[in-house]
């Protein structure tokens, strides 16, 4: 890329002429250091995890027991917990999140009321994670406890609903995570819905479409890349969320498939154990961190691929 010569046209002096170059270097520095820091983090985690990598190999991923006192480390229960809580959170948050986004992108409310609701929803993202955790302890834990008792008594023969029911459980963490990722889904979906050109909306109306036909048949498909991006970001956030999950999930290292059983995630494992870990446990935790990073990266790569695919399908509209 060449610098834009016309920018400095008319201005004398080498400083003015060099200014575009100077800005370019600053921006380049920013970009390069972001890549560098990412590499550094990866390298550091990898180095620290090395002893555990050499000791346990890939068996670490499939091992169902995490027993520091016997130096037995398997991360499977936490892997399952991480994916399960994130999936529960998305399943719970996606339908209302998208519904709110559609509601706020249409003129159902006067503009000021719409802006107010949007602000409130986005404010959900500003609440610190630890506050969500506290709220979860006081509100969601007792709720899930009583719901779980009722459900497990009746449907306990299903593996996903087997008892005994605990308040601090997989479902509790999933419910609170759903609230935490809702604003992400809503804000990004809304932005992409609003960005759908007015001409497309008018095109649908001009062909005799009703509002809902236009939304579902034309507007939503056009905004699909943004909605996909919102979902991926939400998934990434749900998988990496630490504090609230550590406060609510019960932090059990036992592998269980029940929604009402205490569980653990990779992030909550790290938060709970790293402070008192030593020796091989540190290496094992770093290995778990590596798995978490790999997992979130995989989600982001997959998301990027989906995003590109949907974008290709809607390219050229804007």
């Amino acid at each position: 890329m060449t610098t834009d010569k016309t920018n400095s046209g008319g201005i004398e002096g080498s400083v003015a002429r060099r200014l575009p170059d100077f800005f370019r270097w600053i921006t380049a520095l920013g970009a390069v250091s972001a890549v560098f820091v990412l590499g550094w983090i990866f390298w550091e985690v990898f180095e620290e995890a090395k002893p555990a990598l050499e000791e346990y190999g890939l068996g670490f991923l499939t091992g169902a027991h995490w027993q520091p006192n016997r130096d037995r480390y398997g991360v499977l229960p936490f892997l399952v917990g991480t994916v399960a809580t994130a999936v529960i959170a998305l399943l719970l948050a996606f339908p209302p999140g998208l519904a709110i986004a559609i509601f706020l992108s249409e003129d159902f409310l006067p503009r000021t009321a719409r802006e107010f609701v949007r602000f409130v929803v986005e404010l959900l993202a500003a609440i610190p994670s630890v506050v969500y955790g506290l709220w979860g302890i006081f509100v969601v834990v007792p709720l899930i406890q009583s719901l779980g008792t009722w459900v497990t008594e009746r449907f306990g023969h299903l593996p996903f609903l087997s008892g005994p029911a605990y308040g601090n459980s997989l479902l509790t963490a999933g419910v609170v995570l759903a609230l935490m990722v809702l604003p992400t889904i809503t804000a990004i979906s809304r932005a992409s819905l609003v960005a759908v050109p007015r001409t497309l909306r008018e095109g649908a109306y001009a062909l005799g479409a009703t509002r809902w036909e236009a939304i579902l048949g034309v507007i939503l498909p056009t905004a699909a890349p943004g909605v996909v991006a919102a979902t991926i970001l939400a998934l990434g956030r749900a998988m990496g969320e630490t504090m609230a999950v550590a406060m609510l999930i019960g932090n059990s290292s036992r592998l269980s498939w029940s929604l009402f059983a205490p569980s653990g995630t990779l992030a909550s494992l790290l938060a709970n154990q790293f402070g008192e870990a030593e020796g091989m446990q540190v290496a094992a935790l770093m290995y778990a961190a590596l798995v978490l990073v790999a997992l979130t990266l995989a989600v982001n790569f997959a998301g990027e691929a989906v995003l590109r695919y949907t974008e290709r399908r809607t390219a050229g509209i804007r």
């Binding site: 050109p197 001409t199 497309l200 008018e202 095109g203 649908a204 001009a206 062909l207 005799g208 479409a209 009703t210 036909e213 048949g217 034309v218 498909p221 056009t222 699909a224 399908r313 809607t314 509209i317």
Partner: peptide, 22 residues
């Protein structure tokens, strides 16, 4: 319209859109 506004659909689905919604 002034600017063409095809939907993010196939050529075929664009043309039959008004019939589909009927």
């Amino acid at each position: 319209f002034q600017r063409s506004n095809p939907f993010a659909k196939s050529i075929y689905e664009n043309v039959v859109y008004s019939l589909r919604i009927c």
